[in-house]
Simulated assay, not measured.
Amino acid sequence: MNIPILEARDVRKSYGRGSNRFDALKGISFRINEGDSVAIVGKSGSGKSTLMHLLALLDAADSGTILLAGDDTAHLRGSRLNKTRNQTFGFVFQQFFLTGTTTVLDNVMLPLKIAGVRRGERRRRAMAALEQLDLADKARNKAANLSGGQKQRVVIARALVNDPRLIFADEPTGNLDTQTGAVVEDILFTLNREHGITLIVVTHDEDLAARCDRRIVIRDGLIIEDSAEEAAA
């Protein structure tokens, strides 16, 4: 049996204490296989963004286990945790998180700089990622001068530059018009289907979720629907 790339076992997360306590996740369990495309769907406050942060090792669960390729991530600390995130995951967020005053190339090279890759190699790999996204001609432009669609493609290039096994996309088309959003979606699903990169999309957009192989619906911190379980039934 193949080991899933990600597995959550009875994962729980709360915020606050006493009467102010909010249980964001109340016991979440599921597996994601390498190469899958999975939509995590839910309304605001459902727990879907909390779950993504835990799966991406950006936050820690209060209890339960998250396994990455079969290994318990609770043992990851400090530089090991940062290295694992940097080398294994790519991130595409609605807000872009680009440094507008620096060039597109510098923005894309940032994960490689964090990883300690030499400048010449950083530049080569970043340019290759930009070429893949048809942005090589924008390499010297300031990020602030790009359109919304171009910014999101730069974000995808930055996510790809370390050859990730998995991309987390949090409302990746939320700030884009319908036509531009469709282009960004096509890029993400091409990376998934043609390059085998596992894709986890967090969204409230049902049309975007429908493009994924699997749909997990969260409400009030619990999974209320999982299309993989329905298919197996």
Rank of each mutant, 00 (worst) to 15 (best):
K83W: 10
S44T: 09
K113P: 09
T99V: 13
R122F: 11
S44A: 10
I224T: 09
M127N: 08
I114R: 07
A209Q: 04
S147Y: 08
H53F: 15
L58V: 07
A182Y: 05
E171R: 13
A169E: 04
D170V: 03
I32Q: 05
I40S: 01
K26V: 09
L98K: 02
L110I: 08
D186T: 14
A232P: 01
D205A: 15
G221L: 11
V184A: 09
L146M: 14
A126Q: 08
E194L: 12
A169C: 10
S147G: 15
R219D: 07
E7L: 04
T103K: 08
D10R: 07
A157W: 04
A126L: 09
T198E: 10
G196K: 05
D226K: 00
A129Y: 00
A159D: 00
D186F: 15
I187Y: 06
I197V: 11
R124D: 04
G16Y: 09
L133Y: 05
N2Y: 08
H75C: 12
Q132A: 15
L68H: 01
M52N: 10
K26C: 11
N2C: 10
G100H: 03
A209V: 03
R219M: 06
L176K: 07
A126E: 02
I218Y: 02
G45N: 06
I197G: 00
T50V: 03
L58S: 08
L6F: 09
L222M: 11
L135H: 05
R153I: 08
T178R: 13
D59I: 04
Q150S: 15
G78L: 14
D163S: 15
A74E: 12
A74C: 07
D207S: 09
R119F: 14
